[in-house]
Nucleic acid binder design. Structure first.
Length: 529
RNA sequence: GGGCCGCUAGCUCAACUGGCAGAGCAUCGGACUUUUAAUCCGCUGGUUGCGGGUUCGAGUCCCGCGCGGCCUACCA
């Protein structure tokens, strides 16, 4: 009543206009839904008719504001177990979407849902004021409704609000999916995520968990003194990773720009600029294949820390993963797709070469092994190779084909070949490899990190090697980034860098197999009209 | 990109070897003052993803296309 009164008077003048609009809407509706079944059109038409009836009764179906005094969760929290048939004497005003209506003559039960919490409205006709009785006849499942009344428990002990006043907050025109079977069509769940969220508690659960993970990651970084920054997503040249970019065009600049494939180079320019600890959590974009583990836009946490090496970064990574697990699941001891996995530190540390030696049974292999022999080993394991590949790339291919998917428990795979790591510094005691690691969990890469390359001349040489590869047809090879080189020439302190695939971390913690289940609106092929 | 599978009412799903397109829920009408997927009575609802073909007859078989899922390949 407190929220309804002002609308009745405020909108009196506007009613003539809105009535006219309603009529046109009703006429055009059949056009917009002409391609769908007539039952849906009938349902929408019926609901529009109810909108018209409400307006005729001077009830605004789309009011401007409402002031609940309690959330449904508040009410539930205040009375965790009220005895059956109790009247608390406490009045409150609540709101939510109607997810169920059971009309039993002079008594109606309405179930509201708000933020994933359900609460029943116990509505004997006699308790309602006159306007609310009329309104109750015109509400449907899917509408938003406010209710003011007393908190009670029914004969069966169901906690309820027994309203004296009902306020329509928004009239829904489309039906909700089946209340029992829900919405299981995967395409509909991804394209109309709002329906998925209304109906499927699991969907809500995943995205609430995702928010907790992001909060935990930020909290850990903040506590360690890292400053969150935002660097460009529109890049004049793509850099920081080996990937094909999306290209776009800026009209005023008359220039092509690339959606970023990684924030890495900008973040390291900040280190050169004297910000000793920076991180960014945001989207990168890669114009490559899609799968259950790849969405074209995905979220990475990247961090850079002055004076640190990759051993320090491993410790940071362990803390981040363990903290995210505790925030999301309350423990580091998880189960993923039916199999146990522990995110408790320390994680296993092993070199890539060692893993390849084990997998191939060739203990003598290293990056000095003759190319002909390495190619033979590849063929022996059905790993395709290309003539342009050096020993580092061949060993990496063997690792990816034979080992990576077998590493279930968290494993830091260390010391990647220089050839495939153009931004990582050479190992302090073995110049053929870099101080780089990837973190593998449940057979998938979750993080990539290194002691950063800070020697500008070495970096230029590496960029030039990449440029040659690109000229030779490698579409994912990097290009020379002069702006970055200039920043390095200013002087980059020793730096430890980290990139974490946040979507994959959420998949791991939510025990979900498809990346599209952890992204609210995953990329899908556009629907043609 | 390749392979396999799927697409039927608003939602969830049936329909034998090619033989009248159905059910539950929801909607709509009716009864009902303690329900919990309320119950009961009655009704309505379809371009079987789209386009061709075979056939007396196609949801079903064939060809093409669209969209999605899973696996696979590249990547995080």
């Amino acid at each position: 009543m407190d929220a309804q009164t002002p609308h009745a008077s405020d909108d009196a003048n506007a009613d003539a206009d809105t009535d006219a609009d309603t009529d046109t809407d009703a006429d055009t509706d059949t056009d917009t839904d002409a391609s769908t079944g007539s039952k849906l059109q009938e349902i929408i038409a019926t609901r529009r008719e109810k909108v018209a009836q409400l307006r005729a009764a001077e009830v605004e179906p789309y009011p401007v504001r409402f002031a609940p005094t309690a959330s449904l969760a508040d009410v539930r929290g205040r009375y965790p177990d009220l005895a059956p048939q109790t009247d608390t004497g406490e009045r409150c005003t609540v709101a939510g979407r109607i997810i169920s209506i059971r009309r039993m003559g002079k008594l109606t039960f309405v179930v509201l849902r708000e933020d994933g919490v359900d609460l029943q409205l116990f509505c004997p006709r006699a308790a309602l004021d006159e306007g609310s009785r009329a309104l109750l006849e015109l509400v449907d499942v899917g509408d938003w409704l406010g209710a003011q009344g007393e908190v009670v428990a029914t004969k069966t002990g169901e906690l309820s609000v027994k309203p004296t006043t009902l306020t329509l907050l928004s009239k829904g025109l489309r039906p909700l999916p089946d209340k029992w079977h829900g919405l299981s069509d995967t395409e509909a769940r991804f394209r109309q995520r709002e329906l998925d969220l209304v109906v499927n508690a699991d969907a809500r659960r995943v995205f609430e968990l995702r928010a907790k993970v992001l909060g935990a990651l930020r909290a850990e970084m903040e506590e360690r003194g890292f400053v969150e920054v935002e660097t460009p997503m529109l890049h004049p040249i793509p850099g920081g990773a080996a990937a094909r970019p999306f290209v776009t065009h800026h009209n005023a600049l008359e220039a092509d720009l690339y959606l970023r494939i990684a924030p890495e180079l900008y973040l390291k320019r900040l280190i050169a600029g004297g910000m000793p600890r920076v991180y960014e959590i945001n989207r990168s974009f890669r114009n490559e294949g899609m799968s259950t583990r790849h969405n074209p836009e995905f979220t990475m946490l990247e961090s850079y820390e002055a004076y640190a090496d990759y051993h320090d970064v491993m410790a940071l990574t362990e803390s981040l993963f363990a903290r995210a697990a505790r925030a999301a699941r309350g423990t580091t001891e998880l189960s993923y797709q039916g199999r146990k996995v522990s995110l408790a530190a320390p994680f296993r540390r092993v070199s890539l070469l060692e893993l390849v030696r084990e997998a191939t049974g060739r203990g003598e292999l290293d990056y000095g092994t003759d190319l002909v022999e390495l190619r033979a080993v590849c063929e022996q394991h059905q790993v395709p190779w290309e003539p342009a590949w050096g020993p580092g790339k061949l060993v990496l291919e063997l690792y990816e084909a034979l080992v990576e998917h077998t590493l279930w428990d968290p494993t830091f795979v260390m010391d990647y070949p220089v050839e495939v790591s153009p931004l990582a510094r050479r190992h302090r005691s073995d110049p053929g490899v870099t101080e780089r690691f990837e973190l593998i969990v449940v057979g998938r890469e979750h993080a990539n990190a290194f002691s950063e390359l800070i020697d500008p001349d070495d970096q230029r040489t590496r960029f030039e090697a990449q440029a040659e590869a690109k000229a030779a047809g490698d579409e994912e090879a990097m290009v020379v980034d002069e702006a970055y080189l200039r920043a390095m020439e200013l002087g980059l302190p020793p730096t430890g860098g980290l990139g974490v695939g946040v979507d994959r971390l959420v998949m791991l913690l939510a025990d979900v197999a498809n990346i599209r289940d952890v992204i609210l609106f995953p990329t899908l092929r556009p629907q043609q009209q």
